[in-house]
Write a protein that binds this DNA or RNA. Structure first.
Lengths: 346, 346
DNA sequence: CTGAAAGCGCTAACAC
DNA sequence: GTGTTAGCGCTTTCAG
């Protein structure tokens, strides 16, 4: 007989082989402390040798407490954020089965101070925090502080890579920007002209990264198109609409428009009112009901999307896995850069 | 107090309220028979009233037997099929945790008789079958026969809609064809010319559906392009390569090529040898390593994909859910029509 | 510091 | 036909 058994090793096996009790193995596994370091080593070596993996079903069943997840999402009127919010409500029954619960909190994401304060307030009130926020030293510090106090932090949509968050759930935004550029360039075709860019704020990491990827590909692959300086619309339709209207007026040769962030209703209105929507390739992000409409009417030519449902489920799975040491299937957690045309909308 | 409790109802609760034992409730829930019909009704009404849902974790833990899944995939040298095969191996550890196991069987999918025979042989040898096969009366009958004998059947990639299969896991292929047409039409742009089509066989439902969707959009939206009669390459590179080479020779104005099925290595080779790859927009399906390469070198312009990993996991989840009555999240099981350009490959 | 024992909610054998 | 009971593999008191 070899050391690799056909049957999975159980806690009992580990305890027996290590010559200790179930409770001690459990203490070591969840480092709850109160175990001699020699014992710890012995148990760990047995765990290793037996290739022990806890059975998640059994763990869930036995667990008394529920894991508390807190989602921190931007306040305001962003439709995509509302979709995320709804998806959190939608996973509630599933979470309950996993002995977990989730609440959503809205925070002023454009203000590092406010966000940092809200994050600090989470300490002790949740076991894991899923945060969509801006990449700023204050925010990074707040995240690190949470992690120090044992809270699992997962960043969502927009990463804070320098922080000690355990995971990021979202798309690769540089790649998304490159994808937008390729689509826009190919859709415009051989025509010459200018291309406009609208973003929420350069302080948002996802926006900055998309811009970077977009400019990269436009510069090298579609150099005959002239990139106009980006416009900042703060993700608000009331601000993007007049800005884009002015852009249209002063740029008669506009052939393409890339909208990096939110505020797409304003852009759509401006494009439609100008009567030039047909001749301008417009690419935006996130398949909200409005974007869907714009795609159907032909005002938008492509929408690059990240699946809100997938992101929320993934964030939950990763947070719970980090809390309980469960296995994750990395493949399943990769968020895709979805491209939607009029034809392949779900 | 109302009937809706905060706490989930358990089997115990149902048994107590219905005034029967655990075993009886279990019998009713899994209709194992041997229960008076009056008792059955009473139990069922209590289940309803209490909103009882079995706890999947507890069920999995208690279950002695393992559910046996059998995947039936096409034999031959199709790379995408190999990817599915690998994904089945990859979920094995997860399946083991769910008290389930999976085996892969290869069958001659182009022969209804052979496929039907292989399906019949599955009876009694598995609890659920995941089948990728062609839509043919013989195959349909074989599936129905399995279902009659208590086997859960899930179709994969190519559906057999008239059968009694419990679910289909795959993309909407008409929509996929439409998507291909939109991409091809927009990438070709204002140029005039002919568009070629290569498929495996019209007898494969997914191929027929893609063709339908493609022709639909090409005819209405890109009518200036001339659609050539489709070529059948039986999903084999040895056959597609000479066919496409001939197509290229006799069609000097070829501006686009849509390859609906497999055999893409042959098409790629033909395109490259012709020296006209740059001027022909080529769109194909499934992001295999070769397709990826073709996209990188620019020979392919877009790849429409269905995620093999997602499909396999989804098929497993649906089969297990059908066997155990667990809840499914429909959202999570929707297979997306992925569009890959050079820039957004995973 | 360590161990024993009581469940979690279900399945499945076995009794009546 | 129906009930009783012993686990599944873990977590979590509560005793030492």
């Amino acid at each position: 007989m070899s050391d690799t058994h056909n049957e999975r090793a159980t806690l009992h096996d580990v305890a027996r082989v290590a010559g200790v009790s179930l409770a001690t193995v459990d203490r070591v596994l969840h480092d709850r402390g109160g175990v001699r370091s020699r014992t710890i080593e012995r148990v760990q070596s047995v765990v290793e040798r037996l290739g022990y993996r806890p059975d998640p079903a059994a763990a869930r069943l036995a667990r008394k407490s529920v894991a508390r997840l807190a989602f921190v999402l931007p306040s305001g009127t962003n439709t995509f954020v509302d979709m995320l919010d709804k998806q959190v409500q939608a996973v509630a029954p599933w979470l309950a089965e996993q002995r977990a619960s989730a609440v959503v909190q809205r925070a002023d994401v454009f203000s590092p101070e406010a966000l940092a304060r809200d994050l600090a307030a989470l300490r002790g009130r949740c076991d894991a925090a899923v945060v969509m926020g801006l990449d700023h030293p204050r925010v990074r510090a707040a995240i690190d502080d949470l992690v120090t106090h044992g809270v699992v932090v997962v960043t969502l949509v927009s990463d804070v890579p320098a922080s000690r968050r355990s995971r990021f759930v979202g798309i690769e935004n540089v790649t998304a920007g490159r994808t937008a550029a390729t689509l826009l360039g190919r859709f415009v075709g051989p025509r010459a002209g200018s291309v406009g860019i609208v973003l929420g704020s350069r302080a948002l990491r996802d926006h900055a990264e998309r811009l970077f990827g977009f400019e990269q590909v436009m510069g090298t692959e579609h150099a005959h198109l002239k990139l106009l300086p980006p416009i900042e619309g703060h993700d608000l339709s009331q601000r993007t609409e007049p800005l884009v209207t002015k852009l249209l007026q002063r740029t008669p040769d506009l052939v393409g428009l890339y909208s990096i962030g939110a505020g797409n209703r304003g852009i759509q209105a401006a494009l439609e009112r100008s009567g030039r929507a047909e001749h301008i390739v417009w690419i935006c992000h996130e398949l909200t009901p409005h974007a869907r409409q714009a795609l159907l009417t032909g005002v938008a030519d492509a929408v690059i999307n990240q699946d809100a449902g997938h992101e929320v489920r993934s964030a939950c799975r990763l947070a719970l896995a980090a809390l309980s040491g469960e296995r994750v299937l990395p493949d399943q957690e990769r968020i895709r850069i979805d491209i939607f045309l009029r034809d392949n909308m779900p």
